[in-house]
Amino acid sequence: MKVITVTNQKGGTGKTSTTLFMAYGIARQGKKVLVIDLDQQADSSFSFHVPYEDSQSTFQLLTGTATLPEIIVNATDKINLAPASPDLSQLDLLLAGKLDPQFILKDALKAVSDKYDYIIIDTPPSLNMAVLNALTASNTVVVPTQADLYSLKGLNELAQTVEGIKRRSNPDLDIAGILIGRYNARTVFTKAITSALEEMAGQLHTTVFKSKIREAIAVKESQNAFKSIFDYDPHGKVTEDIQAFIDEFMEKEN
């Protein structure tokens, strides 16, 4: 079982989209996938368009009032979901003073270790207890970003967070790479920022994925239709980009 966290402390970088791309793309290869939504906005949970109760969510999991098997719902034939709820906004306050609270998710995953090939964790755009739990429980990290100036600042903050996690709770944590989304190869600015991102990747001891996801309305349309991009626009250029990223990621991991 491989556990992947999708994270970036900057908001609006495409974490939920990347989580969905990876879940659907890896499931298409016949793998059994669990998506764990740790973002209080619950966008990943909403995007699967399946019923669940806010009282059976990752908030209850991380506060010890439910087990992981108890909150899991079926999203597709190959994808299960551990949904989020707005109550996650209270998590840091409720876990304050607890002993080693960053290990709660890692311990909870033991209950499903033989049921999934991949677990993909969607995280909020902040450094909070949910993110610390995700990074402590994970084997690897995918960092979605955009080719803009503010993304450089976000990556610097993430580098410090990851180094702290490796020192304290997960020394084997690996960063698979930085994924650039909403990419426009035709602009000089995009090329310059991409070069800067590649330099910044060195601080994270990783690289920028060669595959980049272009700007495309089909991504938002597929989410609005509650469909996988692979089903909504199977022959689209952006779908080719996403498949190339999935192939590159899987090749790196294997």
Rank of each mutant, 00 (worst) to 15 (best):
V73P: 02
V73T: 11
V73F: 03
V73E: 04
V73A: 07
N74M: 10
A75C: 08
A75I: 04
A75R: 03
A75D: 03
A75F: 04
A75S: 07
T76C: 08
T76E: 07
T76W: 07
T76S: 12
T76N: 08
T76I: 08
T76H: 08
D77R: 10
D77V: 09
D77A: 14
D77C: 01
D77T: 13
D77H: 10
K78W: 05
K78R: 10
K78L: 12
K78D: 12
I79D: 01
I79S: 04
I79M: 08
I79E: 04
L81S: 05
L81C: 09
L81A: 09
L81H: 06
L81E: 08
A82V: 09
A82N: 09
A82W: 04
A82Q: 06
P83Q: 06
P83C: 07
P83G: 06
P83E: 05
P83F: 04
P83N: 07
A84E: 01
A84M: 03
A84W: 00
A84T: 02
A84Q: 02
A84K: 00
A84V: 05
P86Q: 03
P86D: 00
D87K: 02
L88Q: 01
L88Y: 01
L88T: 00
L88P: 00
S89T: 05
S89W: 00
S89C: 05
Q90E: 06
Q90I: 00
Q90W: 00
L91E: 00
L91C: 03
L91F: 02
D92W: 01
D92Q: 05
D92P: 03
D92K: 02
D92R: 02
L93R: 04
L93Q: 11
L93A: 15
L94W: 00
L94E: 03
L94F: 02
L95M: 11
L95W: 01
A96D: 11
A96E: 14
A96H: 07
G97W: 05
G97P: 06
G97F: 09
K98H: 14
K98M: 13
K98W: 10
K98C: 08
K98G: 05
L99G: 02
L99C: 03
L99Q: 15
D100M: 13
D100V: 10
D100T: 11
P101L: 07
P101M: 08
P101D: 09
P101Q: 07
Q102V: 09
Q102K: 12
F103S: 14
F103D: 11
F103N: 14
I104W: 02
I104P: 00
I104Y: 10
I104M: 09
I104V: 15
I104Q: 05
I104N: 03
L105Q: 13
L105I: 14
L105Y: 13
L105F: 14
K106Q: 15
K106F: 07
D107G: 10
D107Q: 15
A108R: 13
A108T: 13
A108Q: 15
A108E: 13
A108N: 12
L109N: 11
L109G: 13
L109W: 10
L109T: 11
L109M: 13
